[in-house]
């Protein structure tokens, strides 16, 4: 269980998150949706320790997560698939994947996890020696996902995976998310594609201007009501 309680965070003098509280149950998919500038990415960055908290706490299974460094997150079983993929363009696909298992504890199982990733994303396997910069947007997103899975994380944090992708690829992507959920991983998904995100999620949170304005189980969410809130000012 990931518990985000009363979190305030931002960039320097500009505060973005205003007392955000969200709890993410283990083994379920929690989606955070909201318009641009709502603070979704900032919240994920705060979980990963890329943005310091000025108030509140973030706990994973009771242990505080805030204050620990970004690079120690993998050892705690948390992996992030960042917005805009952030793949390493000048390196081959295989090198990108291997980097996903950088911490010493992960290196032993890196080869096995790499094969698993290739099984899940066959297109990457065909291109393993190509430079990542030559991939299409969809393939790059698959690579970012595969890299995130290299450390076999329990908690996956995924930031806008469908950004700029063709509908067919988006469908494929959400099938993979459903599979990851079925594997028993805890997932936090930030999305703009409300229809798809609510479809795959167990819990839905809507953020607006740095606050959580709606928290509901996915089954109780009506898309129309959600969209009304989404577009409200």
């Amino acid at each position: 269980m990931l518990e985000i309680a009363n979190v305030r965070a931002g960039y320097g003098a500009i505060n973005i998150l205003w007392d955000v509280s969200i709890s993410v149950p283990t083994g379920q998919l929690t989606t955070i949706i909201g318009p641009n500038g709502a603070g979704k990415t900032t919240l994920l960055r705060a979980i990963m320790g890329l943005v310091p908290l000025s108030q509140g706490s973030i706990r994973l299974n009771g242990e505080p997560l805030d204050g620990s460094s970004t690079w120690s997150m993998l050892e705690r079983g948390v992996a992030m698939i960042p917005e805009g993929r952030m793949i390493f363009k000048d390196m081959t696909i295989e090198e990108n994947l291997m980097l996903g298992a950088f911490p010493k504890a992960q290196r032993a199982s890196a080869q096995a996890n790499c094969e698993k990733a290739y099984a899940m994303f066959p297109r990457l396997s065909e291109r393993r020696t190509q430079l990542a910069g030559t991939l299409s947007g969809g393939e790059a997103q698959m690579l970012a996902m595969a890299r995130g899975l290299m450390s076999d994380p329990k908690l996956l944090i995924i930031d806008e995976p469908s950004l700029g992708l063709a509908p067919v690829v988006v469908n494929e992507l959400f099938e993979i998310l459903a599979r990851l959920k079925a594997e028993g991983r805890t997932i936090v998904l930030v999305e703009q594609n409300t229809h798809k995100a609510v479809g795959v999620a167990d819990h839905v949170h809507l953020m607006q201007s740095g606050k959580v304005v709606l928290s509901k189980p996915a089954a109780e969410v009506s898309l129309e009501a959600l969209h009304e809130l989404y577009f409200a000012h």
């Binding site: 120690s72 993998l74 000048d90 980097l99």
Partner: peptide
Amino acid sequence: IALRAMHDSEDATRVVGVN
């Protein structure tokens, strides 16, 4: 490999567990 990755994006290298 991590050094070369850092050349691209330091934040991304931190996220994959590089100090």
